[in-house]
Design a protein around this nucleic acid. Structure first.
Lengths: 338, 338
DNA sequence: CTGAAAGCGCTTACAG
DNA sequence: CTGAAAGCGCTTACAG
């Protein structure tokens, strides 16, 4: 027996296909008697409406594409989980777009909004994957879209962010308050807005404390564990070592901690370590990692909220949502050694 | 200017819509001259074919739904990343189905294969979300589907697994070889096949070593960090403590380690800790975590491979792929204390 | 409250 | 190598 279509259900229940459709999508406008007849046929026949027909007719896929550089990291995984959960409540499904750092993949995923594969885009990367005509307003040229985590340098796009500058500044001020003067920074990937912002926070905090920037103490990383390892090894080779290291991600901080412990340094007595993100493993490190907490679930929720507004046609203009970070003081930071 | 359709491109380039379609999907069967004309119109018009029309016509969505209990954990995240990457190469997109442990969500996602939202299903949960008629062959009643990680207790479904029994047995044998006799087990979620299999491996190893099972040393967990904490706290209260703890996941092992270190126990001198999974953080713990490595990328690749075979109609019967685990001996396990 | 009809945008078997 | 035509399975404006 072949799969049943709406016509079959219509025939079985003695109504028109239109009425079957109404019963399923808009039961209130159908008489109770009709509804019962139709639902009986639907259930007995095990009928599931095909999305192909509905999608073509309504010009909606019911999908949202999430474009991320790497779903494997705890920050992105936490955000996407919240996104998926919220999207589902609103009847949308999530398409995974892991770019693995490739621009071509970014374009590919963004294109899904052109082909109708997705109704909206959640962009966690900082390149603009759509061609914009500068003469026209940005909003009119884009599909429903929300940008988060890495800020695209374009006005007129809805964004969900935390204040990275203030977050990094808070981190460094915490270290300063403990008496540290030689504070290293382990940065994220070159040119990413989040890294540049956190670097700015670092520099601002030092400048305010009238401490000169020492370029040797600023190491390039990529937010990953291994780059934290490499950065710490590099810092340990310095004749004048830092007394504290501010890593722009928890993963790098965890990598840095492992190097220190392997080499017999005590944290925080010899060197303090500070992270950024507050992934779930941070508080379970020994010593527990001091870090800046990012509200992953709230970020995910806010992304969907802003996107749904656009999908529902309720938003006239771009919205900017800033979510609060939080300093989590734990055991990996302590007073500067004398 | 409204979005262009295939008819517009046909009109602009002076051919029929059929020829435009051929040029885009099957350029070889079109003359070079025609191809050039059409491609010019396509590029200048910025034409992207609508998936709505194509999907309805071909009865394919080009999507695969991945049903997982929690994408936030490192094991699942690693697998899904490989899946997405491989799927993309084959022209498929991934729909995220995070069940958050809810059976209703499982059904919801599985249903996507009925509605055409997805062409195939990758199932990482152990409930059968489709109704089966026992009189008919299993394969005929299911959409293209591959089951992995948690084995559904049904014959006739393609699966990608590791040998959990042997993996756990290997873990416990490693501890036995270090002289441990009081070996605790921290299990995963109740009733999950992976937990039952690993428990069996634990029991088999002990039985072979003629060590009696002590029920007090078997603690229920849920694979998560916090349950590792709770389990370790419980074990520490025992009058006769274990000298080694085999956690059925690295996350639980990490939780257990943090409890031990907080309470002044030395790992492995006082108590050895063993994990399962080999997530990326395992080797960076201090001490580095001894564990059983799961080949996440290979699991993801194998899942897509088996599913593609079904999608391409090349598979006559269910296939079973078993991938090798690997014992990673690191510093969290050592000789049993005297 | 319900039905008949049109149409969403493609692809492909058929014919030439 | 190309075109005309049919049709994939729905939804909805229109009419009654």
């Amino acid at each position: 027996m072949a799969k049943l279509g709406i016509k079959d259900i219509a025939a079985i229940s003695g109504v028109s296909p239109a009425t079957v459709s109404r019963t399923l999508r808009n039961p209130d406008i159908v008489s109770e008697e009709t509804r019962k007849k139709v639902m009986k046929a639907v259930e007995e026949g095990g009928y599931t409406p095909s999305r192909f027909g509905a999608n073509l007719r309504t010009q909606k896929s019911g999908n949202i594409i999430v474009v991320m550089p790497d779903i494997t990291n705890q920050v992105n995984a936490g955000i996407i989980r919240a996104i998926e959960s919220e999207a589902q409540k609103a009847g949308y499904s999530i398409l995974l777009g892991d770019t693995q750092g490739l621009a071509e993949r970014e374009k590919h995923y963004a294109n899904m909004a052109q082909s109708g594969q997705a109704d909206g885009v959640l962009l966690f990367t900082f390149h603009m994957p759509f061609n914009l005509n500068k003469a026209l307003p940005v909003l009119k040229q884009l599909p429903p879209i929300v940008n988060s985590c890495e800020s695209i340098p374009i006005e007129g796009i809805s964004k969900v962010m935390i204040d990275n500058i203030a977050g990094a500044r808070t981190a460094v001020e915490h270290l300063l308050s403990l008496g540290h003067k030689r504070i290293a920074a382990v940065m994220g990937p070159r040119d990413t807005p989040s890294t540049l912002e956190r670097l700015k926070g670092y520099e601002t905090a030092l400048a305010t404390a009238r401490i000169e920037i020492d370029e040797q103490l600023i190491i390039r990383g990529d937010y990953g564990l291994d780059s934290g390892i490499g950065a710490m090894e590099q810092l340990l080779k310095l004749r004048l070592r830092p007394t504290a290291v501010f890593c722009f991600s928890d993963d790098m901080a965890i990598g840095a901690m492992s190097v220190l412990q392997e080499n017999g340094f005590r944290i925080p007595q010899d060197i303090s370590i500070m992270g950024f993100d507050d992934i779930r493993y941070a508080r379970l490190m020994t010593p527990a990692l001091t870090t800046i907490h990012q509200p992953l679930e709230e970020i995910g929720k806010a992304c969907i909220e802003l996107l749904l507004e656009q999908l529902d046609g309720k938003s006239e203009q771009a919205r900017y949502v800033e979510l609060p970070f939080q300093l989590m003081v734990r055991q990996s930071t302590g007073p500067a050694p004398l």
